[in-house]
Design a protein around this nucleic acid. Structure first.
Length: 1005
RNA sequence: GCCCGAUUAGCUCAGCGGUAGAGCGCCUGCCUUACAAGCAGGAUGUCGCUGGUUCGAAACCGGCAUCGGGCACCA
């Protein structure tokens, strides 16, 4: 016995064995053993087809929930299966720094201490952040280990570690060089709570009950109206001036031009933004207002003269058909403003309060300002009405407050060229890249890549990758503005070099070095690194290659394992993550060329360079993963998505402690049969129990006991020492289980390989519980318990083979249990691992459906007898004479050959067989060709009669259906011949059975 | 508004052209020396509704209903 298996089954004779499996000790032991042996630390130069998965790095925001356990169970099942296929498997773990989420947590903590991050300063803040990372990351890694994740911990990465920072900087630099990153002032989603810009994806629309305020905007009288004011909108006048004469419908006759209009009414959900209005827009084809286009409005409360412009965006049917235009605070207005050259006036500060441009409202919070503006308008008699209005408001995912569209200078990734490349890959005629499983998600992915908007990647945060751009602040008076020139560089030294080359005057380098030495240069060069950091998803987007060593293309891991084989993740991050990875890979690895010069050249001396890896020239092989397996979410007992924020998450460790990691894993995977569908976990919060996981735990225990039984009956032998079963010596149940084994091993491999993991789990469950335990072992017991050495050896061989193969196949799903039991059964050294064995290759000769069906008759006959016994009043323990009646020679032979086994299984004092039943027996029907009979006192026949009646009704119903079908000439004419034949056979069978049933009923009276 | 799922036994879900399955639960009986976390036997469904295609539909197509999700969004 291997030492690690202290609580594992031990061969008979070593004293009392536990009757139940105790997962806790076993799981911890094997996790330690695997890791100590480096079992999952692959060598890129080793042989074997590469198979790589990078795990979705969990955020270091606390601990993992059931969704992570689910993802882990799926990935680990896949990679363990591939390892059993003999591939050189890398499964790379890591965690994500989650800028905004972690910073939010930390700031909350700091605030609770009565301070701010500015009070602490960057250095002290980072100390806290890294301490937090160590704590949370440690918890997470501990949880992943506890699940038995077969990842390579030596390659564990963190998105903010130095290696990944190098990738991030390099990626930024190259994208910038390619013109795919730009900086500029645009309207961005501003989260006042976190004080940062966020991307479109981090904004969630929420329906709220708001109000629609109708405000009166007086027209500036013509004589006062500085006609020059309309000059800026000159372009707008042209299309709006006269409705096209060839579109008479555009000019309804019941809208006579009203020259008495002296004001317009606009409707808004955000009255406070009126302070920043720079125009009012109407639809160009709206006859009510066409004549006013070009006139001016005197903006109330502010007094600014703003033009009336004509813009097709305005829906004449909504409200009054007049829209106030606030280009600096609304995306649509921004676009209108651009089209008409309207100024952009920002009236809010970055903390969500009103700024100086808001005049007397300055300093008020945006929501206070809303009330104040409404009150002021009302006081001036300009509030026409207020209507309740249900509408969507953009909320910040993290900050949980409405985002403010705000003009701000930020960095952006130009996404369209990247998205176009991804769309092309998806349209690859040789097969979509990546291939989504289930396929329907590719549509979601494509839709998002179509009409994509640029990606704002800068964040006004501290925790994250600092943007590798240095501003030449000496060019703009020592401050950073939108106009400040900058250089993008790998580090500060390179930044200085670049800046000098572009802007340099002699001496600034010395100035930098010496600091205090003031040179007489009129304008010494001053550099200042951008204080902002990058969106976390920018670094996550590099994950499949940054973790493998990119941009160092001499990296052996990159050469061996890129592109990875499959990405396994939830549908909720297809946009955030999957699409970002493919887009960034497209920009950074698309041109991958082994001959390129510079730091990326592949050193021909490196072993990876010579290894015959997958062809680099493969079309679109830059796509970082061949398959994307999208799984559902874990929902709670009330069908709600489990999440931290909803507070309904379940710590997987609770269930692991109660049932074991293998049980939890098996339960999660078994539930996933319909790939991509959400799974519901029936978790009882009061008792911390789950029937689903409990069932899996019971399955684990069943396997444990089956192995215990085997060990007690293999006489200390192992599959290897016993040798292969010999075909000539096999008995019915041997033929049955071996044939089932051949089919199960190939079906199961097919299911695992095509990500139908739930089906694989169910298949193995049935094979183990039904075929092996219920049927094989029970039928083989007489030989195993008997004293015929030859027969016993054959049964031992078959049992040992089948059980060992089962444990291998089960290993991806229940790694610890299978590893433990495999050691016990195989007698393998403690230094050997099931995890590194090969998928079973049972002898194809064993496959024999005719033997399977022959044995199935035995199963059916036993069941029929047991059923009959249950109906009779005979005590279960009482042995009695039993007969099996069948005219078929093969079946008679089967009964003869298995007489003792069957007698044992049905509690027969004597088992006889005859073609026809003898009189005086209580008879049960197996099928039209076989009956079973008990010799019992004629009592309690009512139950039997009832049963037979029921069967007869069923039979007759079947006959009616089948006969009806066959009577239809179209059926006989059009259905395939084999279907018709089958139908006829079924009918004959049903008729024969009905005949027997009637006979029995007749006898019973 | 656009797109996508789901609707099958009491519950959770498979099945996706040949006439309905599993697990749990339920009923009955068993401490049968691997396992009561077990064994044996059993019951349970007009497969959401409605048209159509087909010899044949739970499955394929159209419509409807209910539930859920995603995207977009007019002040």
């Amino acid at each position: 016995m291997p030492e690690p298996a202290s609580s594992a089954p031990t061969p008979a004779g070593e004293g009392a064995l536990p009757k139940t499996y105790d997962p806790a000790g076993t799981e911890a032991r094997w996790q330690a053993a695997w890791e100590a042996a480096g079992a999952f630390h692959p060598d890129p130069s080793a042989a074997g087809e590469p198979f790589a998965v990078v795990i979705p790095p969990p955020n270091v925001t606390g601990s993992l929930h059931m969704g992570h356990a689910f993802n882990t169970a799926l990935i680990d099942t896949i990679v363990r299966f591939q390892r059993l296929q003999g591939k050189n498997v890398l499964c790379l773990p890591g965690t994500d720094h989650a800028s905004i989420a972690v910073q939010t947590i930390l700031e909350k903590q700091i605030k609770a201490e009565g301070a701010s991050k500015e009070d602490l300063g960057r250095d002290a803040f980072f100390e806290r952040a890294w301490a937090w990372k160590a704590h949370s990351g440690g918890t997470i890694v501990g949880q992943l280990r506890r699940l038995g994740y077969s990842v390579d911990w030596k390659r564990e990465r963190f998105t903010l570690d130095p290696g990944l920072n190098k990738s991030v900087v390099e990626a930024f630099l190259r994208l910038h060089e390619q013109g795919l990153i730009y900086r500029g002032e645009y309207l961005v989603n501003w989260c006042p709570a976190s004080g940062s810009a966020v991307s479109d994806l981090e904004v969630e629309m929420k329906e709220v009950e708001g109000s629609l305020w109708h405000l009166r905007y007086p027209l500036t009288p013509l004589e006062d109206g500085p006609t020059g004011a309309t000059g800026a909108t000159g372009t707008a006048g042209a299309p709006a001036a006269a409705p096209a004469p060839d579109h008479p419908n555009d000019h309804p006759i019941d809208h006579p031009v009203d020259h008495s209009i002296d004001h317009l009414v606009v409707a808004t959900t955000r009255p406070e933004t009126m302070l920043g209005d720079t125009g009012v827009a109407v639809n160009p084809s709206d006859p009510r207002y066409a004549h006013l286009v070009g006139r001016s409005i005197s903006l109330p409360l502010v007094g600014r003269q703003i033009p009336i412009v004509a813009d097709p965006h305005v829906d004449p049917a909504f409200g009054t058909g007049c829209v106030k235009v606030t280009p600096a605070h609304d995306a649509n207005d921004f676009a209108i403003g651009q089209r008409h050259g309207l100024p952009q006036i920002t009236v809010m500060a970055k903390d969500g309060s009103m700024n100086a441009a808001a005049g007397r409202f300055a300093g008020l919070d945006r929501f206070e300002a809303r009330q104040a503006v409404v009150a002021a308008m009302e006081a001036e008699g300009l509030l026409v009405k207020v209507e309740p209005h249900r509408h969507s408001v953009p909320y910040s995912d993290r900050g949980k407050v409405p985002v403010e569209p705000l003009l701000s200078t930020q960095w952006f990734v130009r996404t369209e060229p990247l998205a176009a490349r991804c769309r092309t890959a998806l349209d690859n005629p040789a097969g979509a890249e990546p291939r989504f499983v289930p396929e329907r998600w590719s549509k979601v992915y494509r839709d998002w890549l179509t009409d994509i908007r640029d990606w704002c990647i800068s964040r006004q945060l501290w925790w994250g990758h600092r943007i590798p751009a240095w501003f030449v602040v000496s060019e703009t008076g020592g401050v950073i503005t939108e106009a400040t020139p900058y250089v993008v560089a790998r580090d500060e030294a390179e930044a200085w070099a670049k800046a000098e080359a572009q802007f340099g005057t002699a001496g600034q380098a010395a100035g930098q070095a010496a600091g205090a030495v003031g040179l007489a240069a009129a304008q010494p060069l001053q550099l200042e690194q951008d204080p902002d950091v990058l969106d976390t998803w920018f670094s996550s987007g590099l994950w499949p290659f940054s973790t493998l060593g990119w941009p160092d293309s001499g990296a052996a891991d990159l050469a061996k394992w890129y592109p990875t084989n499959v990405l396994v993740t939830g549908f909720d991050i297809i946009f955030f993550w999957v699409a970002r990875m493919t887009m960034l890979a497209g920009a950074l690895l698309h041109e991958a060329d082994p001959n390129r010069t510079g730091p990326d050249h592949l050193d021909p001396a490196h072993p990876a360079a010579a290894a015959p890896e997958r062809p680099v020239g493969d079309r679109d092989s830059w796509i970082p993963f061949r398959d994307v397996y999208i799984h559902g979410l874990v929902r709670d007992e009330n069908n709600r998505k489990m999440s931290k924020s909803a507070g309904n998450g379940i710590d997987p460790l609770l269930l692991i402690e109660r049932y074991g990691a293998d049980a939890l894993r098996f339960a999660l995977v078994r539930e996933v049969a319909g790939a991509g569908q959400d799974i519901r976990l029936d978790y009882d919060r009061k008792t911390d129990t789950s029937a689903t996981v409990e069932a899996a735990r019971n399955f684990a225990n069943k396997l444990f006991n089956a192995t215990r039984f085997a060990l007690m009956n293999l006489g200390g032998e192992t599959p290897a020492s016993l040798g292969e079963p010999l075909l000539a010596e096999l008995e019915s149940e041997d033929r049955y289980i071996l044939s089932r084994l051949v089919r199960t091993s190939s079906q199961c491999a097919e299911l695992y390989g095509s990500y139908r993991l739930g089906e694989a789990a169910k298949l193995l469950y049935e094979f183990a519980w039904n075929d092996l335990c219920d049927h094989y072992i029970e039928w083989a017991k007489p030989r195993l318990f008997g004293d015929d050495p030859a027969a016993r050896t054959t049964a031992r061989r078959v049992l040992a083979r089948s059980l060992e193969a089962l444990l291998v196949m089960l290993h991806p799903l229940m790694p610890h249990l299978s590893e433990d039991l495999w050691h016990a059964v195989s007698g393998a050294e403690a230094t050997e691992f099931l995890a590194l064995q090969r998928w079973p290759q049972p002898d194809q000769q064993w496959l024999d459906p005719s033997h399977e069906s022959a044995f199935q008759f035995g199963i059916d006959a036993v069941r029929a007898i047991r059923n009959l016994r249950a109906l009779s009043a005979v005590k279960p323990s009482e042995k009695l004479p039993i007969g099996i009646h069948t005219p078929t020679a093969a079946r008679q032979a089967f009964v003869v050959a298995n007489q003792g086994k069957i007698a044992r299984l049905v509690g027969a004092s004597e088992l006889h067989w005859e073609a026809e039943p003898t009189a005086g027996q209580l008879l049960g029907i197996v099928d039209s060709d076989a009956q079973v009979g008990l010799t019992v006192p004629q009592q309690s026949l009512d139950a039997l009669r009832e049963r037979l009646q029921k069967d007869l009704v069923k039979s007759e119903k079947e006959i009616a259906g089948l006969a009806g079908r066959l009577a239809n000439p179209n059926f006989a004419g059009k259905a395939p011949a084999e279907v018709v034949a089958e139908c006829q056979a079924n009918l004959a069978e049903a008729q024969a059975q009905a005949e027997l049933l009637r006979g029995r009923l007749g006898e019973l009276g």
